[in-house]
Each structure stands twice: as C-alpha cells, then as structure tokens.
Nucleic acid binder design. Structure first.
Length: 853
DNA sequence: GTAGGGTTAG
C-alpha cells in the first residue's frame, strides 16, 4: 500500500490561479446541498448563495455528456469551451458531475493542457473530494504517462483514510482499474500492482478472477514486482500457503519478496516461521536485510508477546544505526507497549532518537492503559496538543477511553463521546471506537448510555455485542444480559469464546445450576469447550452454582491447566469457606504444577491462611508474599492489610499501609478505613477519609460501606447517619444492600432494635432508592445477631423465622436463633431449631451426572 | 514491501 505519510503535494505549477469571483457561477448551482461540496464554501467564504438558474445549462451538460458517451470528444470539448469564451473555465456554471466526462474527453483526445487546467480549478474549489473527479484525473495522468502525478493525486484522495471510510478506497482502486480498461487505457505495471493490492485488502476473490486472467494474458506473473504484490495479496487474504507457492515459484526473488514473506508470517502470528524465513534469507548470502525486514520481525515479537527477542532486535537496530527510521522506532516502541514493558517504551519515547508521530503517542497511551497506568495515559493524551503539532485521531480516542473507564471517570468518557460527535465521526462507521465506548460506559455503570450507544451502532460485530453483555454482567443486570444473548443467537452476529465466557459468568452470577449446565452444554455442542478460557469459566460457574463436585471432577479431567485454572479452584474454596482445601490445593499446585503463583493465588492463600490461623495465619502468608516477591503488589498488600485487620492486629495493617507510599490505590484506603472500623477505631477511620481526600481520592460506594461499618462498630450512630446522608446527597451514591445492612447493624448494636426494625421495613420496600432484594438474608442476619445480643425474643424470633424461609442452605442463621432461645432458656425451641439444622445437613447438593464431558 | 485502536477466565 502507498504510504500516507510520504504524501507529497501535487506540484504547485500545475495549478492555475483564480480570483474568488471565478467561483461564483459554480457556487450558485444547487449541488451545494451535497456534503461533498461543502469544502467549496469553505474555500470561498465570501461568496453568498443566490437562486440557481442552471436549467438552461443542464441541457448543455446533457449534450456534453451524450457527446462524450458517443466518443465525440473533440465536439464535447468544443461545446464546453463555447461556454467559456474568455478562456476562464470557471464561467462554466455547470453541474459538477459533468467534470469527470470532460476530463475523460481530455484524456481521449490528448488535451493535456486543458486537463491540467481543469485539475487546478477543481482543486482550488475543493472538488477533489469527489470520487469521480479524482479518479478521472488519475486515469488522465496515467494515460499521459505521468505516473507520478497520478499517484500523488491518488494519495490525496480523502477516502484513503480507510479507517473512517471503512475501506472504500480499495473498492475505488478496482473501479478505477476497470474504468481504465473500459477506456482502452493499458494500465502500467504500477496500476496492475495497485489493483492486486486492492484485491488483497478487500479479500475479493471474485475480482481476483479477471485480474488474474489479465495478469496471465500479458505475462505479468513473471514480473518480480507483480510477483511480490501477489505474495502480499495472498497474505492479506490469509492464504499464506498460496503466498509461499508464489514465492517458491518465483525465478528471481529480491529483498521485497523475502520481506513480504517475513511480514506475512509475522502478521499471522507465526513468529517461528517469520524467524525461519529470516534465517533462510541470511543463508542465501546475497541478500542483506534492511529496516523493513527488521520491522517484520519486530511486529512478530509484538504479536507474539516475545519481549526478549524484541529487545534483541532493538539492540541490533541501535548497533546498525537504523533506529532513526521512525517506522522502525515506532514499531519497537509499540512492541514494548504491547509486551507490557512500559518502562522501556517510556524510555524510548523520551530518548527522541526517531521522529515521534501520532502513532508513537498512541502506542504509549495504549501501553499505559493496558498496564493500568491510567493516570499517565490520560496525562499523555492531554499533552499531545501541548507538546506536538499533532491532533488526536480516532485511534488516540479509542486508546484513552479504557484509561478513563479504568479510573472510573465517567465525565471523561462523556467528554470523549462529545468530541467524537463533534468531529462528526459516525459511530456506525467506526465500530471499534463505538465498542470501546460501550465498554467504557458499562464499566462506569452507565448502562443506559451503553444501551443507547449500542442501539446506534450500525454493523455492530461480535466484540460490540460482547461489550454490551459485559455492561449488563458488570452491573448486576444478568436478566437483560441473558435476553441479549438470546437476541444475539437470532441475529447475524456469531458468538465467540468471549461471548461464551460472559454467558458462563452470568450463569455463575445467577447461581442457577440449571442455566449454568445449559450454558456448559452450549459450549460443548458448539465446540468452544477446548478453549482453556472457557474451561476455566466453566469451573468457576460450577463453583458459583454450588456444585463443587462438578468443578472438582472437571478440574481432575483437564489436561491443560494454567494459573487461572488453579486460582479458580482456590478462590472457589475461599468463597465457600473451605479454607483447609485451599491450603491443600496450594501445596498440590506447588508440587505438581509448573504454574507460578501470581497475585490472585497469594490473595487466596492470605485469606484462607488468616481464616484458619488468625493473626498467625496472616504472618505465615506475609512470609510467602515476601518470599515470592509480591511485597509491592498493591492488591496483595491490600489483602494482607485486610487479613491483619480481621485478625485484630491493626498495628501491622497500619504499618503496611504507611509503607505502601505511592503504590496505594483507592482500595488500599478503603481497606484501611474498614480495618480501623472493625477494630473499634471509628474516629481514626473518619480521619482517614480526610487524608484520602487530600491524597486525591474520592470516597466511593465501598468507602462508605467501610465508614458505616466503622461507625457501627464504634457505636458512632450520629456520624454514621451523617455519612449515610453525605453518600446519598453529596456523592449521589444510592445505598445498596451492604450500606443498609451496616446502618441497620449500627442501630442494632446500639440496642435500638425498634428503629433498626423500622429501617429494615423501609429498605425492603420500594423507596426512592429503588428496591433491595428482599430475599437477601444479610439484613435480617445482622438484625438477628443484635436481637440475640439484647435478648429480644420477640423481634429475634421474627428475624429468625424469616431467615429459615429465605436461606434454606445457610446453617449459620439457625445456630444464631437457637443461641437466642438458649440465652433465654427456652430449651424446647432450641431443640426444634437444632432439628431443622440437622435435616438440612442431610440434603445433598445437586450432582454432576447430568453433564456430559 | 513499511508503525497504532475494541470484547473475555480468578
């Protein structure tokens, strides 16, 4: 493909100069309504529109057109010139659609001067955005053998911006090629090559048929230039086999042939093959690699995630002095960003060895947001205009959107959305950008915005649907998610592995074994089950649907396991409080698996260890954390802090928090506030909120849960109510189940049981905050605990009976209730509840037999 | 013949 960057202007000498009055007649025509011609009014803003009076002219145009159609070119030009006796063609108040015909006439009668004159005029009017005009001019230049002029014009074509125009450019190339043949203009080699390239870009095998016969008829297949472009075309069509055949059959191979093959393998993610071709080329001896060769190899590394090989090539480029090539430099920068070595990418960007293009900025922004440095991504985005002459494009926006959503900055997403609308980028024309926005809205819990946008995206593809499903899944809207999945099955868009993973996640969230088994069945019958990601999602789904046996059986049967597989089981056991199993499985993993523990593994280990052994357990886990090198992993340290706090060792939690420094995140603050809270240091928790604000973090929903819980544990009812009010009225956070549970618990702990009971009734009914799921035992559980503490039989019995109905699986509530009866020595009732408990323990969980493997 | 963007498992 031709480069956009090496674009050169058409020599100025080609243009004739016109005064603005020259445009007036043309601008009077009614075609100004056509958006294609909007540039004309920009070019001559001083011209106002007047009533069109081109009826007569239209007849003349028709005449010109028919003359051209009947090949009476000279006559047509003669007629045209009759309209411009003063040799100023601009007095031709014409329908612009006549221009392509006139240009063709010029080509046919070798009237080059006049053609160039037309070109200059049309450029000045801004009519070159009209496809027919550009292509006719290109055909004309080709006819006169002015290939350079033709290609320069070709590059100027606005629809070459293929990402916004969704590939129109290549269709046009083929049309142009056909046009040339129709005009009996024998295309030069370069034109044939471009047609081959276009076929490849469009993957149009139908067009390829006639192009192939043309090539064979003229014996062009023996030409190395065409041979090389054939190789690229086959690569674009993902037919590496045919590319290799062409390569093998070529009599003469040059560096381009080798480079194409290397690049082809690289793009197909065949890193090893790319390298092999490179080594074979070196064996041939007579061909020396260049920057393009290395570029192919760097791309291979990026795609495959081979950081070390990429680094080697980088070193080679430095030694060979090739890094000044900005394309190579940018590719290496991108390789570092893609392989997660953000420090190297940063360094390369800062060095300034090669000229920084927008792609360099975009790569680094993407690298930052992929590695979680969202803040840096946003800062870099904002710096583009300040530190360069570059303007963000759609790819910049698509790269910075995940950074904003990672920061939870909905207003950032909205402003990007506004920029997109302002730039007039059609969401339908840029599915990737639209998908990125849907995803971002979903992650920032604006499901409605995601839905509206999703509905607007024309040509939504699988990732777009997946993003919408993700939005539902993340925002506890599984019901809508399931409906959307069913809708997807009825649509033209095919589910992929990501879709199936989401489906399984949604089933897990529903906790419905029936739905989950069906989803598992779907993945088996549709051939998705061989993907490790899917298998892991299935394991997790069964764990969440309380079918531990199903998970365990599947886990044993799995041939391939990765760290996520192990973590799924470990965290599954943590969730069902089967902590000793977590520890056993962890040691099993260390013994029999090559998988190295990661942050998630350690978090499971910390939680189970602390749950089993309290403070000592936390210390043991802490040793593991240090030994395995996770001392600065924020999530792991947060978890350790939590474990110490839960074990009552607030000093250790506090010291960890103090030493975290810059690695602290929002979660660290939330954990520390909760840590103070659960250890009766309510006032310290309130102070931390202020410090957190000073550190630039705003309290979120979890922060308030921690604060409310802190107030509850420290008996600070007034402060608790104040925070509850602050949360709702200042931060616009609607109370969720946990907030209600905390505040009810707060009244309960203080012995204000009647008020707590009124709050329960209020929270469970529809109120201005929406509806809390009434089948949740959390609220009643907290209340029962309080009733037990204050020996309030009347309300306690009410809560206990409610819980026996609501949570038949839970054995904790009957125990609480029997404790309540015991504390008031009502032994008959104690026995009754104990009997219920025993009966429940006999009920077996649903088995695995219904699922085929 | 040449660099950049979207969804997903714990």
């Amino acid at each position: 493909m031709l480069s956009l960057r090496n674009k050169q202007r058409i020599p100025k000498a080609l243009f004739l100069h016109f005064s603005s009055s020259d445009f007036t007649p043309l601008l009077r025509c009614n075609h100004l309504c056509n958006p294609l011609f909007s540039r004309a009014s920009t070019a001559c803003p001083d011209i106002s529109l007047s009533q069109n009076s081109s009826k007569v002219v239209n007849n003349e145009i028709s005449l010109i057109k028919s003359l051209i159609r009947t090949c009476k070119f000279l006559q047509s030009l003669f007629l045209f010139k009759k309209f411009c006796p003063s040799a100023s063609i601009s007095s031709f108040s014409a329908d612009p659609s006549a221009f392509p015909f006139l240009i063709r006439s010029c080509a046919s009668v070798s009237h080059l001067d006049f053609g160039i004159c037309l070109h200059g005029y049309l450029t000045k009017c801004g009519f070159m955005s009209c496809f027919d005009i550009s292509t006719s001019l290109i055909a004309m230049y080709l006819k006169f053998g002015n290939n350079v002029g033709a290609y320069q014009l070709f590059e100027e074509m606005p629809s070459r911006d293929k990402k916004f125009g969704s590939g129109r450019f290549f269709e046009e190339t083929l049309l142009l090629f056909e046009e040339m043949l129709a005009l009996d203009l024998l295309p030069c080699l370069e034109a044939v090559r471009l047609a081959v390239v276009a076929c490849g870009e469009l993957s149009r095998l139908d067009k390829w048929q006639w192009l192939q016969s043309f090539i064979i008829d003229y014996g062009l297949d023996r030409n190395p230039l065409i041979g090389n472009s054939l190789i690229s075309m086959y690569i674009k069509m993902e037919r590496l086999d045919l590319a290799c055949c062409t390569f093998d059959a070529m009599e003469e191979r040059d560096l381009v042939s080798w480079n194409s093959l290397i690049t082809g393998h690289a793009q197909a993610k065949n890193w090893a093959d790319a390298l092999n071709v490179y080594l074979t080329m070196k064996d041939h001896g007579n061909i020396i690699h260049n920057n393009v060769t290395l570029l192919g190899l760097v791309v291979a590394c990026s795609q495959a995630g081979y950081l070390e090989q990429g680094r080697t090539i980088h070193g080679h480029c430095v030694r060979a002095g090739l890094l000044s090539d900005f394309r190579l430099g940018t590719a290496i920068l991108d390789m570092y960003a893609k392989c997660g070595s953000i420090e190297s990418a940063e360094m390369l960007f800062g060095e300034g060895v090669f000229e920084k293009s927008l792609v360099s900025w975009n790569s680094l922004i993407s690298g930052y947001s992929k590695t979680g440095y969202n803040h840096k991504a946003v800062i870099l985005f904002k710096n583009i205009s300040a530190y360069s002459n570059l303007k963000p494009d759609s790819i910049t926006l698509a790269n910075v959107i995940p950074a904003y959503s990672g920061l939870g900055r909905l207003e950032g997403i909205r402003s990007i959305h506004a920029v997109i609308l302002k730039k007039g980028l059609e969401m339908g024309a840029d599915v990737v950008l639209g998908t990125s926005l849907v995803d971002a809205y979903g992650k920032c819990s604006d499901v409605e915005a995601a839905e509206n946008l999703f509905a607007c995206i024309k040509g939504a593809d699988t990732p777009t649907w997946n993003s919408m499903l993700t939005a539902y899944y993340l925002n506890d809207n599984v019901h809508q998610g399931m409906l959307l999945f069913l809708k997807m099955l009825r649509s033209q868009v095919l589910p992929d592995t990501v879709t199936v993973v989401l489906l399984l996640q949604m089933c897990g969230q529903l906790g419905s074994l029936k739905q989950g088994s069906m989803a598992h069945g779907y993945s088996l019958t549709k051939g998705f089950s061989s993907h490790l990601k899917i298998e892991n999602a299935v394991l997790d789904m069964y764990m969440r649907c309380s079918s531990v046996e199903a998970s365990e059986q599947l886990f044993r049967l799995m041939n391939m396991k990765n760290i996520v597989t192990w973590n799924t089981m470990l965290s599954g056991y943590v969730k069902i409080a089967s902590h000793s199993t977590t520890m056993i499985l962890f040691s099993q993993m260390q013994l029999e698996s090559v998988c190295r523990p990661d942050s998630v593994t350690l978090i499971c280990l910390i939680q189970s260890s602390a749950a089993l052994l309290g403070g000592h357990g936390a210390e043991v886990a802490h040793v593991f954390v240090l030994k395995l090198g996770f001392a600065s992993a924020t999530m792991v340290v947060n978890s350790l802090m939590d474990a110490y706090a839960k074990s009552g060792i607030i000093e250790d939690a506090s010291s960890l928090f103090v030493h975290m420094g810059q690695t602290r995140d929002q979660c660290s603050w939330n954990v520390m506030i909760a840590a103070c809270g659960m250890n009766g240091q309510g006032e310290k928790a309130c102070e931390l909120l202020k410090e957190m604000n000073e550190d630039g973090y705003e309290p979120d929903s979890v922060t308030f849960t921690s604060l409310l819980s802190a107030c509850s544990h420290s008996g600070m009812i007034e402060e608790g109510c104040r925070y509850f009010d602050l949360m709702i009225n200042k931060y616009n956070i609607h109370p969720d189940l946990e907030h209600w549970t905390c505040i009810i618990d707060m009244f309960g702990r203080a012995g204000r049981l009647e008020e707590a009971y009124q709050l329960i009734k209020y929270s469970l009914n529809r109120n201005r905050f929406g509806v809390i799921p009434s089948d949740s035992g959390a609220i009643w559980g907290a209340f029962l605990e309080a009733c037990r503490m204050y020996k309030n039989i009347e309300l306690g019995e009410l809560a206990g009976k409610k819980l026996l109905q609501l949570s038949p699986q839970n054995s904790g509530y009957p125990i609480l209730l029997s404790d309540l009866y015991a504390s008031t020595m009502r032994w008959d009732e104690v026995l009754k509840v104990r009997q219920v408990l025993n009966d429940r323990r006999l009920v077996k969980e649903p088995g695995f037999s219904s699922v085929k493997t």
